[in-house]
């Protein structure tokens, strides 16, 4: 009698948690998995900078991502990172900070542009060791803009011009695109309805040298495993020399 009691209780609680789960998301079972040596960083929605956006906006906050990138660099169990991008862009300096962090990580990094990697998403996409874009994804390249109060017009222009130059320099250093071509795309007229710039589609991004290859998840996984192998054999070699 005493033994049967807890069993019954267990059954009850498990069925009520099942009901709760269905109410929450409409899903019941998710598989369990062991540890992984490849971590994933997703950059979604808007890249949020110094101004906090209202909660209905989907944002990627740099104060969340920067410590995660440090943790990835520090953790010996993590051997590679995949960056998933589906972003409309956002704060230029936050985006550049993220790009520089990703570019300076010692572990192999691979990015996949899905849907869109617009505006400041471009330097983030090219900051990795190897970049992929799915055929349907697009990347909008346009000049730096700002909203808000402008006090000194010549000074503001100068400041924006320098900021833009930093973005351009970063992109041409980390991809195969020529400065000339990138600027042509950035200042093209007649492509975007209310702006100057170009909307580059997957295959074209590869053709211009901005992105390394057209591909999806399986290509990216293959590439990162290849880079991890190269990285570990290089480490092994340096150990032997020491």
């Amino acid at each position: 009698m005493m033994e049967k009691e807890p069993e019954k209780k267990d059954e009850q609680s498990s069925s009520s948690s099942l009901v709760e789960k269905i109410q929450q998301l409409g899903q019941v079972n998710v598989p369990q998995a062991p540890d992984t040596n490849i971590h994933v960083l997703s950059i979604i929605g808007q890249v949020e900078g110094h101004v906090q956006l209202p909660p209905q906006n989907k944002t990627t906050k740099y104060e969340h991502l920067l410590p995660q990138l440090i943790a990835i660099e520090q953790n010996p169990k993590i051997q590679g990172v995949i960056i998933l991008l589906n972003t409309v862009g956002g704060d230029v300096e936050a985006g550049l900070a993220l790009s520089e962090m990703i570019a300076s990580i010692s572990k192999p990094t691979v990015s996949i542009v899905l849907g869109g990697g617009h505006s400041i998403g471009v330097p983030i996409a090219v900051s990795t060791n190897y970049s992929f874009i799915v055929p349907t994804a697009t990347m909008t390249i346009h000049p730096v803009r700002l909203t808000g109060l402008v006090i000194g017009v010549p000074q503001t222009f100068e400041y924006l011009d320098k900021m833009q130059e930093r973005v351009i320099q970063f992109v041409i250093q980390h991809s195969n695109i020529k400065e000339e071509k990138f600027k042509d795309l950035m200042f093209a007229k007649g492509n975007l309805t209310r702006d100057i710039g170009t909307n580059v589609i997957g295959v074209d991004a590869v053709k211009y040298g901005l992105i390394d290859e057209v591909g999806g998840v399986s290509d990216a996984m293959k590439k990162i495993n290849e880079l991890i192998e190269q990285n570990s054999s290089m480490m092994e070699e340096s150990r032997v020399i020491q």
Binding site: Q27, V30, T36, H39, I72
Partner: peptide, 19 residues
């Protein structure tokens, strides 16, 4: 969930909407 570990996203404890 703010995690870089893809397996965290497979854990039912960390599904969005969870109380």
């Amino acid at each position: 969930l703010l995690s870089t570990n893809p397996y965290d996203f497979l854990e039912e404890r960390f599904t969005p909407g969870n109380i």
